[in-house]
Design a protein around this nucleic acid. Sequence first.
DNA 1: ACGCAGTGTTGGCAATACCAACGAATTGGG
DNA 2: CCCAATTCGTTGGTATTGCCAACACTGCGT
Lengths: 161, 161
Amino acid sequence: MAREPSVRAVAPPERLWHRSTWLLSQVSARSYRLVLDHLGTANARTDYAVLAGLDEFGPISQAALGRRLGLDRSDIVALLNDLERGGLVARTPDDSDRRRNSVTITAGGKRALRRLDKRVDAAQQVLLAPLNVSERRQLNALLQRLLEHHTAFRTPEQRSP
Amino acid sequence: MAREPSVRAVAPPERLWHRSTWLLSQVSARSYRLVLDHLGTANARTDYAVLAGLDEFGPISQAALGRRLGLDRSDIVALLNDLERGGLVARTPDDSDRRRNSVTITAGGKRALRRLDKRVDAAQQVLLAPLNVSERRQLNALLQRLLEHHTAFRTPEQRSP
DNA sequence: ACGCAGTGTTGGCAATACCAACGAATTGGG
DNA sequence: CCCAATTCGTTGGTATTGCCAACACTGCGT
């Protein structure tokens, strides 16, 4: 999505232009739309997150999956309902703790995940086009630092014992 | 919002943790909540943007204000209705072009803006707490570069002739 | 005079994030 | 052994945000 030549350049207010909160909001909105464009459907974005989580951590409970992805338990239910219906994930009761379902990704889910991988990568490339490799790393490192400070998310190497 | 000690640390999937689009989405969500907490009401966030725009560019038309802020014309209407009702902005028909309203900030609006300034600054401080001054500048510079590439937004010094 | 574009407004929709409440199950302490 | 607290999965719901179409009025250029 290169800038349309007909769109007039504008300067936002200085107050907003120099505040991280506004900048993050604006960039995130464009990023969201880019991913949406590349994935084609609205729920593919969260499907991708769920499949990625299951591929890496499955079998896993719904609640634990939600914690790993930063998603609400009730939203996880709706997402898994659709994915199970599409044959991309499977739920079975956990024999050792009947409160839980054990959720896994299916072979079809893995194939879908790989297709989505490509599209999500393409979206990253478009989003980050004006940055070189070093700058991209810097941006990610700064965002990760902020997440580690403000959430329970940790870089995988830093896992609590 | 320091990390609650009781919240368990979790690692998200590697696929997400290393993708800028996911990181931006997550950080932006926390940033949004921080600003919400500091401002107290949902619409204060956009009120702030509107007042900031009017303070810097007023008098200005509604459509031009929307372009400067990245907001939809119909959302600008609703926002100005509330702000006008609260005495913080004033609309008058533009004598030279009857399609337009000329919108200005009032003295009450300027006072409100200064109060909101303080709260928004406090939110920045909390959000950026784990970064030093140089890193904060870096983050903003990278985000601004992305915005300049993907939107009509330009740093004020770069204004088109 | 006409077509096109801009402006402000109204009415509306989809997606997302978030929450409460409930029933069933598990755990740990008294 | 009993009970309180917590966890899990589910249902049902709400608020907010971003976005869009359509309309009437106005301005501009041909």
